[in-house]
């Protein structure tokens, strides 16, 4: 009881303290001069402009996706849906090609991420250990791939020689490990797993694998989250490997399906009236399709944003 009242009492006193604090801080701070205040108005104006530039196209797409085909085709939608309807979404979600693509992309992102994270840990962990003989050579070998790569055709020839053309593995294996992710993981292992932990584990008779599995990985959850999301979003968003390695449409990831619908424009009708309606519907579907295909990424985005920021900083630490 007493604890409960105590915690309940807290919010009442808190605003007073909060209200007092800024005043006191302002008193010790040197007042902005008039020039500074004008400068700050400029700063806010600049950032607001930037915010709007990023936001307006996004809002326009979402608003259009909820509008009627005629309103979209007539270019009558700006920031608010006109003749609000779900028709566009209904059409998108009943299209076989799109559903197949969506499923395929989930598969590629899921399995691809799993493979990539596993392989990245398998190389980054040994490379983070100073005992490893030839450590510098291995690291050099990884970093060199950031400076120079085999190129399109030579890589294509390897994929073809392995018989991976037109298989799901062609989208997963050739880009399985990113040098950048290896670098981030390696830096993380070196900087945040204390050496004492390893010594203690060794005294208890734990092998390297055991140590990696039961101590390093549980301590590295933020890192695993960052690289998993990097690989996952990368895989979800890529269309290029699919374009060059896949022939069968039933293997196409969503992005390639999208490209064929949105950019190459694969729609047609029979008679003129049909064609008009079909064209208007196709216009609307494009907007709905953009929203549907971006939703999975945007759903994870708020959770990702923080980790990604950390990831960028981890990667920027040299050495």
């Amino acid at each position: 009881m007493t604890i409960e009242t105590a915690t309940r009492a807290e919010p009442e006193t808190a605003p007073e303290i909060k209200a007092r604090k800024p005043k006191r801080r302002r008193a010790t701070q040197v007042q902005d001069t008039r020039v500074d205040r004008i400068f700050m108005v400029g700063v806010y104006a600049l950032l607001t402009t930037f915010l709007l530039i990023v936001l307006v196209p996004l809002i326009n797409i979402v608003a259009s996706s909820f509008s009627s085909p005629a309103a979209v085709s007539g270019g009558r939608v700006f920031l608010w849906p006109v003749d609000f309807t779900f028709i566009g979404y209904k059409a998108v979600l009943t299209s076989d090609a799109i559903i197949t693509g969506f499923g395929n992309s989930l598969f590629y992102a899921g399995v691809g991420t799993l493979v990539s994270v596993a392989l990245t840990v398998m190389i980054a962990y040994p490379l983070s250990r100073s005992e490893l003989v030839g450590r510098k050579v291995f690291i050099g070998g990884v970093l060199f791939t950031m400076l120079f790569s085999g190129g399109l055709i030579p890589t294509y020839m390897v994929v073809r020689a392995l018989g991976l053309l037109d298989t799901r593995w062609a989208l997963i294996l050739p880009a399985a490990i990113g040098a950048w992710q290896v670098l981030i993981a390696m830096t993380f292992f070196r900087s945040s797993i204390p050496g004492e932990l390893y010594e203690a584990a060794q005294l208890d008779g734990a092998s390297d694998l055991r140590f990696l599995w039961s101590i390093v990985l549980p301590l590295s959850k933020p890192l695993l989250a960052v690289i998993a999301l990097m690989y996952g979003i990368g895989q979800w968003n890529s269309y290029f490997s699919a374009l060059i390695y896949l022939r069968s449409e039933e293997l196409y990831p969503l992005q390639l399906v999208l490209r064929n619908i949105l950019i190459v424009n694969n729609t047609g009708g029979t008679n003129l009236a049909d064609q008009m309606a079909a064209e208007q519907m196709a216009d609307l579907m494009k907007f709905s399709l953009i929203v549907v295909s971006t939703v999975p990424v945007m759903l994870v985005y708020p959770f990702v944003a923080r980790h990604f920021t950390k990831g960028v900083m981890l990667g920027s630490v040299k050495g």
Binding site: F148, G150, G151, P154, M157
Partner: peptide, 8 residues
């Protein structure tokens, strides 16, 4: 996937 393509 990296060094054989370079050789190719």
């Amino acid at each position: 996937f990296q060094y054989i393509p370079m050789a190719n």
